[in-house]
Design a protein around this nucleic acid. Structure first.
Length: 470
RNA sequence: GUCCCCAUCGUCUAGCCCGGUCCAGGACACCGGCCUUUCACGCCGGCAACAGGGGUUCAAAUCCCCUUGGGGACGCCA
C-alpha cells in the first residue's frame, strides 16, 4: 500500500476553532496511525480576509494540541504560478473557457432562479463563444450536462450527484487568482495528497473537484467527509454557543490531552472506551469507526474528561502547566517541589487547572479569609479548647508527617473527648477559610509548622473578638 | 426553494454492514447509598433511548420504502 498522505488546509481568517481542530486531528491521527505523512497548508487565496496573525494563531493552537506536521506550512498565496499553469492545461485540453459575463448579470440570474425555485446555475452564455483572455474575463470549467458524478466516501458510502445539477463553475477570477476548488485540487495533486478527510460541509464541492481531477487526468484521492460539530441547539457551532477557539480552552485550564481525547471521541469511537492517551489514539484510530451523524459539543463532558486527565497525569508533569495559572492568581511560583506537593492534594478534585490554581489559594496566601458560613459554623467558642490543645501538641511534635499528625490529633481527641470531625473542621477553617479542602493532615504537612500555628492562633483571636462583639 | 447528508437515553456513543445472544450496553449530567476529618475520589444502585408509519421475515434497533425532524451546500469565500 502507498504511504498515506493527509493534510489540514485551514484558511487564515480567524483562530482555530474546535471543529477545525477535530478535522486536523483526524488527518494527523490517520497519518500517524499508518506511518504516513501529514501536510499543513494555509489556504490564503482570499487576500482580503487572510491575515498572518490568524495563521500564527492556528500554528500556536496546533502546537499546543501536539499536532505536528511533516511538510509545510505551504501558503497558497505563494503558489499562484502553479495554479496558472494548471488552469492553462485545463483550457488547452478544452475543459475550460473564458467568460465575460459581469458579476451583476450573474447576480440577476441567481435572483431569477431563486424566485422560480430552481437551483441557481450559470446559463452557459460564453461556453461556446471561444472568447480569449480579456480585461474582465474569468475562466469557467466546462461541466458535463449528463451523467452522474459519484463520491466513494469512506465514512458516508457512495454519494451520487446528477451532473445536471452542476454548472460551469469559475476556476479563475478576473483578477487572475484561482478559486478554492481549483487551488485545492492542484495543491492536493502536486503535494501528493491521497487521503482527504474534511468536514461534510465540503461534500457539495467534491463533485466539482472530482471533475477537475478527471480533466487533469489524475487519480482521485480517498475522500472521507466527517459530520459537523454542532452547538447545544443543534445548529452549526459558533461563538454564541460559547468558546469555540481551541486556545480559549487552553486558557481556561484544559489539558491538550483531554482536548484531543474529547474531540476525537466526538464522532469517532472505539467500543465503549472513553479515556485515551495520545499514544492510544494513534494506535487505535481508524477511518472505519468515524460516525455518520453530527455531534453536539458538550462542555460538561469535556470537563469531566479533563478531570480524568488531570487525575491520570503524574503531578510532576503538571507543574509547568499549572504555573501560568498560579502566576495569574499572583502566587509565588519559585518552589516547584512545593507546587508538586500542592498538586498531589488537589489533582483529584480539580476539573481544570484554573480551578486548581484558585483552590490552591491557602497554600500560597498567609492571610486566610474566612467564608462567612464556615466561620459561623466552626469558629466559635467551643472550638477554643481543642485548638489550644492542638497548638500545644503541634509545638512539641517532632516531625510533621501524616502519621505523627494523626497521633497528635488523637491526643487532642482524648484530652477534649471530642470526635475528630469536631476538631478537624475548625482547624480546616483556620487554615483554609473554607469547610471543604484536601485532607487536614496533608495540608498541615505542606503548609508547615510555623504557618499552621500562626493561622490557628489567628483563628482563636478571631473567635475571641467575635465573643466580645456578641 | 433545489441538491446532498443524517436519525439509539438530555448529550457523546456501542450494537446496525453479516436480522435472533438487546424487554438495547458504556460514558457525561442528574438522583440515591456506601466509604469518610470536610470536599472530592472510589465503589454500589437508580432515572433515561431504537423519531413515526408501512413492508420483507418464523423473527427487525438491525434490511427496504414513505413521512417527519434535523443538518449542510447552493459566491469572481474557503
Amino acid at each position: 500500500m502507498d504511504t498515506i498522505i493527509t493534510r489540514f488546509p485551514p484558511s487564515p481568517t480567524g483562530y482555530l476553532h474546535v471543529g477545525g481542530a477535530r478535522t486536523a486531528l483526524f488527518n494527523w491521527l490517520y497519518a500517524r496511525h499508518t506511518g504516513g505523512k501529514f501536510v499543513l497548508r494555509i489556504e490564503d487565496t482570499d487576500v482580503q480576509r487572510s491575515t498572518q496573525a490568524s495563521a500564527d494563531a492556528i500554528f500556536e493552537a496546533l502546537e499546543w494540541l501536539g499536532i505536528d506536521w511533516d511538510d509545510g506550512p505551504y501558503f497558497q498565496s505563494r503558489r499562484f504560478p502553479v495554479y496558472e499553469e494548471y488552469i492553462q492545461k485545463i483550457i488547452d485540453s478544452g475543459n475550460a473557457y473564458y467568460c465575460s459575463c459581469s458579476a451583476e448579470k450573474l447576480e440577476a440570474m441567481r435572483a431569477e432562479a431563486a424566485a422560480a425555485g430552481r437551483n441557481p446555475k450559470y446559463d452557459g452564455t460564453c461556453r461556446d463563444k471561444g472568447l480569449s483572455k480579456g480585461e474582465n474575463t474569468v475562466v469557467r470549467f466546462k461541466a458535463p450536462f449528463m451523467g452522474t458524478t459519484v463520491i466513494e466516501d469512506v465514512v458516508k458510502g457512495s454519494i451520487v450527484f446528477q451532473n445536471s445539477e452542476l454548472d460551469d463553475f469559475i476556476i479563475q477570477r478576473s483578477d487572475g487568482l484561482p478559486i478554492y476548488n481549483l487551488a485545492v485540487v492542484v495543491d492536493d495533486i502536486t503535494m501528493g495528497i491521497n487521503t482527504v478527510i474534511r468536514g461534510d460541509d465540503h461534500v457539495s464541492n467534491t463533485p466539482k473537484q472530482i471533475l477537475l481531477y478527471k480533466a487533469l487526468g489524475h487519480p482521485l484521492p480517498t475522500f472521507g467527509h466527517v459530520p459537523m460539530v454542532l452547538g447545544n441547539d443543534r445548529t452549526r457551532l459558533s461563538k454564541r454557543h460559547g468558546a469555540t477557539s481551541v486556545t480559549a480552552y487552553r486558557d481556561m485550564g484544559y489539558l491538550p490531552e483531554a482536548m484531543i481525547n474529547y474531540l476525537v471521541r466526538l464522532g469517532w469511537s472505539y467500543g465503549d472506551q472513553e479515556f485515551f492517551t495520545r499514544e492510544e489514539l494513534i494506535e487505535k484510530f481508524s477511518l472505519e469507526n468515524i460516525g455518520k451523524s453530527a455531534g453536539v459539543f458538550d462542555m460538561e463532558k469535556l470537563q469531566a474528561l479533563n478531570g480524568d486527565h488531570i487525575k491520570a497525569a503524574p503531578p510532576a508533569k503538571l507543574v509547568s502547566s499549572l504555573i501560568p495559572f498560579l502566576k495569574a492568581e499572583g502566587y509565588d511560583i519559585r518552589d516547584t517541589a512545593y507546587i508538586e506537593a500542592v498538586i498531589k492534594t488537589l489533582n483529584i478534585r480539580s476539573k481544570t487547572l484554573k480551578e486548581m490554581a484558585a483552590d490552591a489559594r491557602f497554600y500560597f496566601e498567609d492571610t486566610v479569609v474566612y467564608e462567612e458560613e464556615a466561620a459561623k459554623k466552626f469558629l466559635k467558642a467551643a472550638s477554643l479548647d481543642p485548638l489550644k490543645a492542638l497548638i500545644k501538641e503541634l509545638e512539641s511534635l517532632g516531625e510533621f508527617s501524616e502519621k505523627a499528625l494523626e497521633d497528635a490529633f488523637k491526643k487532642v481527641m482524648e484530652q477534649t473527648n471530642l470526635k475528630l470531625g469536631k476538631i478537624a473542621q475548625p482547624v480546616r477553617v483556620a487554615l483554609t477559610g473554607k469547610t471543604a479542602s484536601p485532607g487536614i493532615f496533608e495540608i498541615i504537612e505542606i503548609i508547615g509548622r510555623e504557618r499552621v500555628l500562626s493561622r490557628i492562633r489567628k483563628a482563636m483571636e478571631f473567635i475571641e473578638r467575635r465573643k466580645e462583639n456578641a
